[in-house]
Simulated scan of single mutants.
Amino acid sequence: MNDNLTIDEFNALELISKLRKGDTPNACIGRNSKRLNGLKFIKYHKDGIFEMTEKGLQTLFVKRCIEGLRLVSQDATTTLAKDVATFLSKKGHIIESTEGGFAITDKGRDSLVDIDSAPAVRV
Results as ranks from 00 to 15, higher is better:
92 G>K: 06
65 C>Q: 13
86 T>A: 12
10 F>V: 10
86 T>I: 12
56 G>E: 09
24 T>K: 14
39 L>D: 06
81 A>W: 01
97 S>Y: 10
87 F>Q: 11
28 C>N: 15
56 G>P: 12
82 K>S: 09
89 S>T: 15
48 G>A: 13
46 K>M: 08
68 G>V: 00
21 K>N: 11
40 K>E: 14
83 D>F: 08
95 I>L: 09
15 L>I: 11
30 G>D: 12
66 I>P: 00
40 K>M: 06
86 T>P: 00
84 V>L: 07
55 K>C: 00
64 R>Y: 02
62 V>Y: 06
18 K>R: 14
13 L>R: 04
46 K>F: 05
53 T>I: 06
40 K>R: 14
41 F>N: 02
27 A>R: 11
59 T>D: 01
9 E>C: 08
63 K>P: 01
76 A>I: 08
80 L>S: 02
75 D>P: 01
25 P>G: 05
39 L>I: 01
25 P>T: 05
60 L>V: 10
54 E>C: 00
87 F>E: 08
66 I>Y: 05
12 A>H: 06
79 T>H: 07
28 C>S: 12
78 T>R: 10
50 F>A: 04
58 Q>M: 07
93 H>S: 12
46 K>G: 07
67 E>G: 09
90 K>S: 12
32 N>V: 03
89 S>F: 07
86 T>W: 04
60 L>R: 09
31 R>M: 09
98 T>V: 11
49 I>T: 15
78 T>I: 13
79 T>Q: 10
85 A>L: 04
57 L>R: 09
29 I>T: 05
18 K>F: 03
47 D>G: 08
36 L>R: 02
68 G>I: 01
96 E>H: 07
46 K>R: 11
25 P>K: 03
43 K>S: 13
75 D>Y: 09
77 T>Y: 03
11 N>A: 14
21 K>F: 13
65 C>V: 08
46 K>W: 03
88 L>I: 04
9 E>D: 05
26 N>C: 04
57 L>S: 15
81 A>R: 10
41 F>I: 01
47 D>Q: 10
54 E>Y: 13
19 L>V: 01
56 G>H: 11
45 H>D: 14
81 A>D: 15
70 R>Q: 15
96 E>W: 00
94 I>F: 09
51 E>R: 14
62 V>A: 13
69 L>E: 06
20 R>S: 14
65 C>P: 00
44 Y>S: 07
33 S>A: 15
49 I>N: 12
65 C>K: 10
92 G>L: 11
15 L>E: 15
27 A>S: 13
41 F>S: 02
39 L>G: 01
90 K>D: 15
31 R>P: 01
98 T>W: 00
15 L>Q: 13
92 G>F: 08
55 K>H: 06
98 T>Q: 03
9 E>I: 07
72 V>G: 04
36 L>D: 03
8 D>N: 14
30 G>Q: 12
59 T>K: 14
70 R>N: 05
28 C>R: 05
98 T>A: 11
48 G>S: 07
94 I>C: 09
32 N>Y: 01
47 D>P: 04
57 L>E: 14
61 F>I: 03
10 F>A: 00
47 D>I: 13
70 R>K: 15
43 K>D: 13
96 E>M: 07
88 L>V: 02
91 K>F: 08
18 K>I: 02
28 C>A: 09
